[in-house]
């Protein structure tokens, strides 16, 4: 019973825990960046005048958004990496990091795409008409006029997606990559499943996600387009 309220394992393993959270941060930032890029490409496909591109974008979003992340990551780690031997690196740590990142960004991109698409709906049609009227092409209109305004209107939802992504990194445990929650599971095995360890890790995630939320809220206000 005494060991149930014992905080000392958190102190003893502090270095390992920090390393775990560092992996979480690396996964989150890289996946977030790739998801943002892929999501932007996807939304451009979904609104393009070419039916084939539109269909491909819609298909992608509907498949990835409706598949559990666990399955996506298992497909990457077990299916693509282990079974099909598609190694990104010969070092297992690096290999699983990139496969985990690939799975997380492929999954998150679908949500980024949909957030951006709803942001595009807040941009009045007249903005795109004025852009076309001065001779901008479809891609220029999207890149210079519509998307910049769409991005600014969905900063807060994109922040929520980033927070969800931070917490979703816990699932890469199935893909063989060691991040914070994997360290926690190991500590439960070593020290027993105690409340202090759990609380310590929960606090660790909040240290990452709470400032993210506040920052994106502030940024959304600052960048809002006044009409």
């Amino acid at each position: 019973m005494e060991s149930f309220f014992d905080f000392s394992p958190l102190v003893q393993e502090f270095g390992t825990i920090l390393a775990g959270f560092w992996s979480t941060i690396r996964l989150t930032l890289m996946s977030g960046l790739l998801a943002l890029i892929l999501g932007t490409i996807l939304v451009a496909m979904r609104v393009s005048p070419t039916p084939v591109l539109r269909a491909a974008g819609t298909l992608y979003v509907n498949i990835l958004r409706n598949t559990p992340l666990t399955l996506v990551l298992l497909l990457c780690a077990l299916g693509l990496s282990d079974t099909l031997q598609l190694a990104i690196s010969t070092d297992p740590g690096t290999n699983y990091y990139w496969w985990a990142t690939a799975g997380l960004s492929a999954y998150t991109a679908a949500f980024v795409c949909e957030a951006l698409r709803s942001g595009m709906n807040t941009v009045p049609v007249g903005q795109a008409e004025a852009a076309r009227a001065i001779g901008l092409t479809f891609t220029q209109t999207l890149r210079l006029v519509v998307l910049p305004q769409a991005f600014r209107s969905v900063i807060a939802p994109l922040g929520s997606i980033l927070i969800a992504l931070t917490k979703n990194t816990t699932i890469v445990i199935v893909a063989g990559y060691i991040e914070a929650s994997a360290v926690m599971k190991q500590m439960f095995d070593d020290y027993g499943g105690t409340l202090p360890i759990f609380l310590g890790f929960a606090a660790g995630y909040m240290v990452l996600t709470l400032p993210t939320g506040f920052f994106f809220g502030w940024l959304a206000k600052r960048m809002a387009v006044v009409r």
Partner: peptide
């Protein structure tokens, strides 16, 4: 696009780029 660049357009609701 090239044709439109030669034809100016002024709209009822101005449609200035808000950002």
């Amino acid at each position: 696009a090239r044709l439109r660049s030669d034809v100016g357009m002024v709209f009822q609701s101005f449609n200035l780029f808000a950002h």
